[in-house]
Nucleic acid binder design. Sequence first.
DNA 1: GCAGAACGATGAACTATCTTAAGAAAAATG
DNA 2: CATTTTTCTTAAGATAGTTCATCGTTCTGC
Lengths: 195, 195
Amino acid sequence: MEDLSPFIDNINRKTRLSPENMALLTAAFKVVKVKKKQLLIQPGFVAKYRIYVLKGAFHSYVIDDKGNEHTIQFAVEDWWLSDYNSYVHQVPATQFVEALENSTILQIDHQAEQQLKNTNWELATLFRLMAEQTAAYLARRTVSNLTQSAEERYNEFVAKYPQVLQRLPQYALASYLNMTREFLSKIRNAKVRKK
Amino acid sequence: MEDLSPFIDNINRKTRLSPENMALLTAAFKVVKVKKKQLLIQPGFVAKYRIYVLKGAFHSYVIDDKGNEHTIQFAVEDWWLSDYNSYVHQVPATQFVEALENSTILQIDHQAEQQLKNTNWELATLFRLMAEQTAAYLARRTVSNLTQSAEERYNEFVAKYPQVLQRLPQYALASYLNMTREFLSKIRNAKVRKK
DNA sequence: GCAGAACGATGAACTATCTTAAGAAAAATG
DNA sequence: CATTTTTCTTAAGATAGTTCATCGTTCTGC
């Protein structure tokens, strides 16, 4: 049996649920184990799940016309992810969501989420707060993408997510920061020399 | 008296409200006229309002360390905008929201919105759908920022918002597309010559 | 425990985009 | 409608970031 307490804490930080509703919510999420490199979401298929990471690491990415991979989002323990556009509108995904390590997730399917939102005030509020926070996060990210240079984006990431840094392959981080792996390598090395 | 039908249609496209709730909602929004160049939101102040554009045009932007302006978002008739991070979390804004033309807006203040969401199921659902759609939109924008070149971003904008194009100052569009005005000028001109 | 694949580092040549500067056009203002 | 201010264009030189090719290192599956 998995320990769901990180998940429960995560929810409690967003809103206060009655014990019954917390039980309803956790019952709607399924524990799933996935192996490194396994895909949870693939372009062409509708994203069926909203995903919470209990243990492990993921990234979501797209592949552009030239065949280059671009990481859109990371998620490690206690983070959420999906292809939001696909999940919200139930249209075919454009993103891959791939495990970077062997991982354990909680997933809720779209239909179950709709059902909860349509019948339960507290849970509807919870999902609203999640959507608002996702929007606020993406807005901040858009600003940082528009205003910072490659090196500044790297520095910001290091400062914000030092623990995450260790666990990510550099090619994924590079594409998340919107630069080539070679250039990221260069930046990192220039830093080391300075010290 | 202003004609609110575009607003009402906008809401109806998101969800079906009872006449009473539609009345409650429209009562919570105030009609405000603003002059070109007027600021609705300013860095340092908490964004008090969620804004719907009835008539006119706006852009939101930030100013970076070097003093350069970066447009984050546009809005013309029938669009919504705010500094979402500031509005959602009620923290000081980082963005300006400025009128590009003399305009008429509908605005709801954060407290009134909370009140409606806390007491009314249908309206809570409406605001949840709005947050979800905002998140999905920002996710799409993030992808396009990460995967496309300057010229491709311009082409995409032209294809998607041809009518909007005419009404925006080029310097605002350039910074929205994450390039200098000079470079945008070059791209446009290269196109004209090809024809 | 080995072979092949995936990952990261490095350097040289290249290119997309920026910077600066100056003039032309357009719009706002009195 | 003349003047001032703002916006757009053009062009030359500068640079951040890419591409390509190569090599050492570390995973990974069998």
